[in-house]
Design a protein around this nucleic acid. Structure first.
Lengths: 262, 262
DNA sequence: CGCCGTCTTGACGAATCTCAAATAAAGTGG
DNA sequence: CCACTTTATTTGAGATTCGTCAAGACGGCG
């Protein structure tokens, strides 16, 4: 129960970051540049589509948006018009449900689609901020719906996407409702590891794109508790951590810690 | 961080319950009785449909299922085929994500639609259990998808439904991540109150359909802590509570308690 | 080189969990 | 309808986890 989970935004975390391209390239809402659709581990809207549907999907993916670290893709309360498909980089989404309360609702990386929480009331219920220089493609939701009416394979993909989002949110709730601090952090790291691996990166060694305070907000803890858990994990040989760089050394012990409901 | 949130199922909580109809009426999967579509405060799939779509929706609502207290509508891992529309009574859904962990993911009452978490993997991710004698109509999802392709109004309703489910799950996560025990219980009671009111029942006086242990599981607390919070609320004159019967006496103080992020 | 934000660590206290016991209500079987 | 068992709930005492406050270290950036 950390006090009102304070998370700074609009900050630049530029350690471990690649050198930054010229500023001119990085204006938000830059233009109508066509966004090429690639297919790596793409368990989302375009999976399993026939050729015709694939062509239509590519037509639908129009606008490409580039954001720099700390820039905001959409804010809570803004009118919902599009889903956003992360092509590179990563984001956090911050829930701002009631005045005074805010919490990191999730971390999103390449290939994931964000913004679906805004469909319900035609207005975004959270704020999405780039954790590093990133690119997204917007998927205008009216066109998504149109294609979904035309093609049942695409429709099914869309429904899966939305349903998975429900599942993810419930997983977080379960983590927050039933796990201790160590277990929460362990589960968080294992989840990150799995997702990096699915994208072809190392599952053992990765760079956190978020601060301790942001991790803490997501896990319903304070940044001090997160820091202490990291230190304990290191002391016990489960991992090595140096600021944002994490190396998982003993994955099975981590798993046991998380799975063991004690 | 209650230890592995144990929640008993298959129990009968029959205090405060109306007398039970003859047993023969209450077989699960009873038959193909047509399920009449009513329209009270129906903010869901049928809202705002034109006449033709409304007719099609009514065609889609086929099977009516009756369950007695403690009976289970679907279990985790079961194949997903339908959404379920609660026509009377109420349910809890229990997440069973990882072995060992389980938690009440939500409480659902008349008019709500449950089961959407199962779409993503064609298999249910939670278990829905009747908290009192209840009736649901099944909405075969293939037919839901078919109608959604035909009628954009219906499609929009479906998307709103799924998106709202994301929002609800995130609200729970925020509650669990940022609020103290008292605040969680207060928020829970105000939420129930609001939902009863929306259904034409008293917003001040209602009967809890769940045990302290079930409330605790939902709120990420122990049953003792829930009980103590109830007692404190009563001592401070915020409400009156006698076992399952709750009377809210000072709603604005409750609201203040919940909103105040201290 | 010095500032500033991030992170770590320690000491302390508060919130809440655990264990235990008592009470009350509900279900069961005669 | 009564005696008995089971279950739900409340309450207390003590242990534990985690939050709060504070100080200091570290590293990046200007």
């Amino acid at each position: 129960m950390p006090a009102a989970a304070v998370v700074q935004s609009e900050r630049t975390y530029r350690n471990f970051m690649p050198p930054r391209p010229p500023a001119a390239l990085y204006d938000v809402n830059q233009g109508q540049a066509k966004c090429p659709t690639r297919k790596p581990q793409d368990h989302s809207l375009s999976e399993g589509l026939d050729q015709e549907a694939m062509r239509q999907f590519e037509d639908l993916v129009t606008e490409r948006i580039r954001l720099r670290t700390g820039q905001t893709l959409f804010r809570s309360g803004e009118r919902f018009t599009s889903l956003y498909w992360i092509r590179s980089g990563s984001f956090k989404s911050v829930s701002l449900l009631q005045a005074g309360y805010e919490q990191v609702a999730g971390y999103h990386m390449q290939g994931e689609i964000i913004g679906a929480d805004g469909i319900g009331d035609d207005s975004h219920r959270c704020e999405a901020t780039a954790l590093e220089d990133s690119e997204v493609c917007s998927l205008p939701f009216e066109r998504v719906e149109a294609l979904s009416r035309q093609n049942s394979g695409f429709q099914r993909n869309l429904h899966r996407l939305l349903s998975h989002e429900i599942g993810r949110a419930r997983s977080v709730a379960m983590l927050l409702g039933t796990m201790h601090a160590d277990q929460r952090l362990g589960a968080f790291l294992l989840d990150l590891s799995r997702r990096y691996q699915a994208r072809g990166y190392s599952s053992c060694e990765f760079v956190l794109r978020m601060t301790r305070a942001e991790i803490a907000s997501y896990l319903g803890l304070t940044l001090e508790t997160v820091s202490r858990s990291f230190s304990r994990f290191q002391r016990e040989g489960l991992l090595q951590v140096e600021r944002r760089l994490v190396k998982l050394l003993d994955r099975s012990s981590l798993k046991r810690l998380v799975d063991c409901c004690d």
